[in-house]
Design a protein around this nucleic acid. Sequence first.
DNA 1: TTGTACGCGTTATCAG
DNA 2: CTGATAACGCGTACAA
Lengths: 341, 341
Amino acid sequence: MSAGVNLKELAAELKLSPSTVSRALNDSYEISEETKKKVVSMAEKLNYQPNPFARSLRENKSKTIAVVMPERMSSFFAKVIDGIEEVTQQHGYHLLVYSTHEDVEREKKIVNLLMNGRADAIVMSVSSQTSDISHLTRLHDRGFPLVFFDRICPDIPTTKFITNDYESSFEGTKHLIQQGCRKIAFLMLSKELSITKERYRGYLDALKSAGLSPEPSLHITCAHEEEKNIEAIRNMLLSKERPDGIVSSVEKLALATYHAVKRTDIKIPEDLKIISFFSNLSIAGLLTPSLTTITQPAFSIGEECAKMLIKKLTKPRQPDLPNQVISIPSKITIRSSTIAV
Amino acid sequence: MSAGVNLKELAAELKLSPSTVSRALNDSYEISEETKKKVVSMAEKLNYQPNPFARSLRENKSKTIAVVMPERMSSFFAKVIDGIEEVTQQHGYHLLVYSTHEDVEREKKIVNLLMNGRADAIVMSVSSQTSDISHLTRLHDRGFPLVFFDRICPDIPTTKFITNDYESSFEGTKHLIQQGCRKIAFLMLSKELSITKERYRGYLDALKSAGLSPEPSLHITCAHEEEKNIEAIRNMLLSKERPDGIVSSVEKLALATYHAVKRTDIKIPEDLKIISFFSNLSIAGLLTPSLTTITQPAFSIGEECAKMLIKKLTKPRQPDLPNQVISIPSKITIRSSTIAV
DNA sequence: TTGTACGCGTTATCAG
DNA sequence: CTGATAACGCGTACAA
């Protein structure tokens, strides 16, 4: 099909044995400089490319890392992958990328497929449906290198990368309160998710420390279709208990809120202030009014995941990935959507 | 590390030879139903997973497709990949994904790495810098299955998937003219790109058929940093030759235009109308005013690319990918940014 | 119906 | 310094 020559043919051309050629190409100390030169130049001339599968079979590693995440159409995940790729590419690693589309069954299938060694490690952010984590436990129990980011599994003892969810949610909520909000809604993906729990906790604690009490009807969980989310938010905005502030724990629901507001007479920030965890800064600035964001360090999170794995995979006798949560802080950028008027 | 048992161990457990087990698992006609049952159930019990590299080495195929594209932070490319994955996953194929970041050098490196057989085929959209296409020619000349989408290489005789660039650009420009525009600007990525050329041609022909003449100072090429694009567009908007309409041949520059307009007193659509090739419909509706779009069928494009390749890869003696351009039409959605007032 | 032997392309071990 | 040989795990032609 595609390839040029293989090792044996290259060796024949050079009138050397395959093993000598292999060593020369791998820059072994036991080969003379002279033959190394000859071998390398002939390899280039004949465009020799080592067969990755033969090598993987022999060495029992694939030089490949798998990324499993809930969706692609999100600037957060896109940036994380960019960060991962930036690091892995420098080390000659390849990236298999999978989207679960927020579906646990798909997530399980993908994870099970990856257990056969096709990838040397997995970087993962779980689906919003994931509550049974047996597929992930099994993976980890077998010693498969696994790191989580953003939507983590606290119960699996490995390294996880997150942003300071609790604190930034607390600060974001506090900011709304300082701007005069008294009835603050909270928008979330599923309640199962680690990020939801932490961000919710931050929100609740901020309310509490201001003497405000949470109102259950103002806590909205994400549905599958965008349209349903928009309508749910709109209904909330028009209800008796209507909020004067919103904390959105996820990008998608902030956009849904803007859509919902468009369908009412409500004005941001006059009648309603909103802050959201968000990664697409260009869009945040273009929304009308521009959106106050809790900006997650997506690219850095990706880089850190990759660095951690590369260290584990390239150093010979590396210990297991430590059971720790590494937090990279978000930054709140105040724009028009929360300005008191 | 990770795996369970291998074929030999599984065979030993069953007191059968590896070949029998192999055949049983591959549902060979020469194995009795009875032993098949036994083998399969034991395989499940011991969680047998065939080693993908041994198999790839043996069969000389990887069950992997590579996707090479210019950037990840674009709803267009994200949707295309979703479409590709939808099809490939059903056929048990895996996806290696690479971003060139619009850098030819990176593109070359990636393509060269892929020549060693790590992937069975490549789906590709070239970088805006790509003018020397020798790396791609070489790939194709070796018989490597390759399809292009969106940003194609016309000179490489293989299958390409695009949208009806010329026609939709023509129609989009015509729409602006009908709404009263007389001085229409054209925003593009690099002039080298296939999509630029086609969309530009459609734009020019629409002007011509309305008796309008193009104004070179209104043709803007994309720079690398977003900020530069914004400033370039702003300067144009404030110049003597200022346009009353804009055709943006790419999503990114439509957003830059909105940013630029924010920095002036210009009003859309009163003083300036804008239409853009665009894929993120949710965002298009949220911009103020909402953006009239030429909506590219990104997901379908991805699906079609994948179907074409799967057919080529799975049918035994499939002919080469035909040298043809397959066009899937875009749809113009008129929103506020082009409403005459 | 099942088992034996070989090869896919590498790299590592052991001789020379 | 270099060459012969075995092994990674699988699938298949050939034998029984």
